[in-house]
Simulated assay, not measured.
Amino acid sequence: MTANPRRQLRPTDVKRLNRTWRRNTEGRLALIVESVTGPFNIGSIFRTAAAFGADRIWLAGNATPPTNPKAQKTALGTDRLVAWEEPVPVTEAVRAAKADGFRVVAVELTGDAVPLHEAELTGDVCLVVGSEDHGCSPALLEAADAVCYIPQVGRVGSFNVGVATAIAVAEVRRREWAALEPARAAESE
C-alpha cells in the first residue's frame, strides 16, 4: 500500500521542509511596528516575523511590547526567536534600520504608494506598519525610502494590521523564492 501524499506532515517532516526553505533564503527581513497597541496584533506580527525568518523588529511610538501577557497568547513564545527593540521614536527606528543596511518600505495607503506586487522588495528590506487606527505617521512616511499598499477589491477599506503585515512579509519571501526557480531549473539540466 502506498503512503497518502496528502497526509499531514509529522513534526520531523515539517522541520526538514522548513530547513530546506531556510537554506534557500538569503535576504534579510526586518520590521518597524509603529504604535500598534493591540496585544493580539503584536503577538500575530511576532509570530509571522518568526515564521518568515525576520531578523529584527523595531517597536516605535507607543507600540505594545511582546512581553504583554495578551500578546503572548498569540505569539506563543516567538518573541524569543526574533530580536526586538523597546519602543523608540519612529524616526530613530528608521535611522537604525537604514544604518543596519535595510531599505525601509512603509505599507500604507498614500498618493504615491505603489501596489505591493510592483514594489521594490529585493535585497535587505525593512517593512513598516502603523497603528490600527491611523496607520503610519507623517514622520514615518517622510523617513521611509518607499511606500506600497496592498490592493483590495472588496468593500472593506483596509486590512487588520496583523494580516497586512503577514501579506507583505509573505510577498517579500515569495519574490525571493520565485527568483530561485529559474536557477534550480538550470542546475537540474
Rank of each mutant, 00 (worst) to 15 (best):
L121M: 02
T122Y: 10
G123F: 06
G123Q: 03
D124R: 02
V125W: 08
C126N: 00
L127N: 02
V128R: 02
V129G: 07
V129Q: 09
G130H: 04
G130Y: 01
G130R: 01
S131T: 11
S131K: 10
S131M: 05
E132D: 10
D133V: 14
D133T: 15
D133K: 08
H134C: 06
H134W: 14
G135C: 15
G135L: 09
G135D: 15
G135H: 13
C136G: 08
S137A: 03
P138M: 07
A139P: 08
L140M: 08
L140F: 13
L141V: 04
E142N: 12
E142R: 03
A146S: 07
V147Q: 15
V147I: 14
C148N: 11
C148E: 12
C148V: 05
Y149M: 12
Y149F: 14
Y149C: 12
Y149P: 13
I150R: 06
P151K: 10
Q152C: 09
V153Y: 15
G154L: 11
G154T: 12
G154N: 13
R155F: 15
V156A: 09
S158K: 13
S158D: 14
S158P: 13
N160P: 13
N160F: 12
V161C: 09
V161R: 14
V161A: 15
V161L: 08
G162M: 00
G162I: 01
G162K: 00
V163K: 02
A164T: 15
A164I: 13
T165A: 08
T165P: 13
I167V: 07
I167Y: 01
I167P: 00
I167A: 01
A168S: 10
V169N: 06
V169R: 03
E171D: 08
E171V: 01
V172P: 11
V172N: 06
V172S: 07
R173K: 03
R173W: 00
R174A: 01
R175D: 01
R175G: 05
R175S: 10
R175T: 15
E176L: 05
E176Y: 02
E176M: 02
E176T: 06
W177H: 05
W177A: 01
W177C: 01
W177K: 02
A178W: 00
A178C: 01
A179M: 00
